[in-house]
């Protein structure tokens, strides 16, 4: 990697929108190149110097972020056409993708825009309610240890538990759309996560019921984009298959046993 000259600017083309329902528009900003920049530090520079390439005074670009080390899931956006975390999107890598030296930033398209690059992802958190994404413990009193667990099972659960609700999997999914009901890989994988826990699986049947209605597991189209864009390399397609199997077995059982007694 050759270090470009100090004077070099990186041009950012940013899709902006002043609020929900407002028309979107593009603005371009220049950010002086330094080694080891990430998209966040460039947005911070623009916040301090909100002047477009054309010399117009603008406002700091609004975006959602928090930890800046790819563990909180907040800063997802579409960068050069591909959804990812803006904290771990390094300029030296991005510039290789775009030989022209231009980086485009857009908000995710599968969630309603709040402003600029900030979108409303409450649908993802609501999905966690739908699938009862929790272990139904009796309470916080001292009741001793949790269930013993094999190292192998922990390894699988840990890989699933790293989901930070960032929304990359849903943004890249051709089946998950702004207006539809599909619950998406994130929640499907979380359902698997809780069904793998000794106590969590008490609610497995209810999770599967929730997972078998419209927008549930069967709405997956197996495009497998989710697993490729997941920044945490969560085995999402394996989760989809696992919940598919559980749903199949569950449906057969339901067929012979009838609906659950209330």
């Amino acid at each position: 990697m050759t270090a470009p000259a100090n004077t070099k600017n990186i041009r950012f083309k940013i899709k902006r929108q002043d609020g929900p329902g407002k028309a979107s528009y593009w603005q371009t900003f220049d950010v002086p190149y330094k080694p080891n920049l990430n998209v966040i530090s460039c947005l911070q520079y623009i916040a301090e110097h909100p002047v477009t390439v054309a010399g117009e005074k603008s406002t700091p670009v609004v975006w959602d972020c928090n930890c800046l080390e790819e563990v909180c899931g907040a800063c997802t956006m579409v960068i050069n056409g591909k959804v990812r975390q803006s904290c771990s999107a390094l300029l030296d890598e991005l510039l290789k993708e775009t030989p022209g030296g231009m980086v485009t930033l857009e908000p995710m398209t599968k969630f309603p825009v709040v402003r600029d690059l900030w979108v409303d992802r409450s649908r993802m958190f609501n999905a966690l309610k739908t699938i009862q994404a929790w272990v139904p413990i009796d309470g916080t009193h001292d009741l001793g240890e949790g269930p013993k667990e094999s190292a192998e099972n922990q390894d699988v659960r840990y890989s699933l538990s790293r989901c930070m609700t960032c929304g990359c999997c849903l943004e890249a999914c051709p089946q998950f759309l702004l207006g539809n009901q599909f619950i998406g890989a994130q929640a499907i994988s979380q359902a698997r996560y809780f069904n793998l826990h000794g106590t969590g699986k008490v609610l497995a049947d209810q999770r599967l019921d929730a997972m078998m209605g419209p927008g549930g597991i069967t709405d997956c189209g197996n495009a497998q984009n989710c697993v490729k864009v997941c920044p945490k390399e969560i085995p999402l397609t394996e989760s989809i298959a696992a919940i598919g199997r559980q749903a199949t077995v569950h449906a057969v059982k339901r067929f012979f046993n009838g609906p659950p007694r209330k």
Binding site: D142, R157, Y158, F194
Partner: peptide, 21 residues
């Protein structure tokens, strides 16, 4: 120690030994 037990019951995927501890 009781907090660890509680977290364990809540499903935190604590790393395990070969015996499952």
């Amino acid at each position: 120690p009781k907090i660890i037990d509680l977290l364990d019951r809540m499903g935190v995927p604590f790393n395990r030994t070969s015996e499952g501890e």
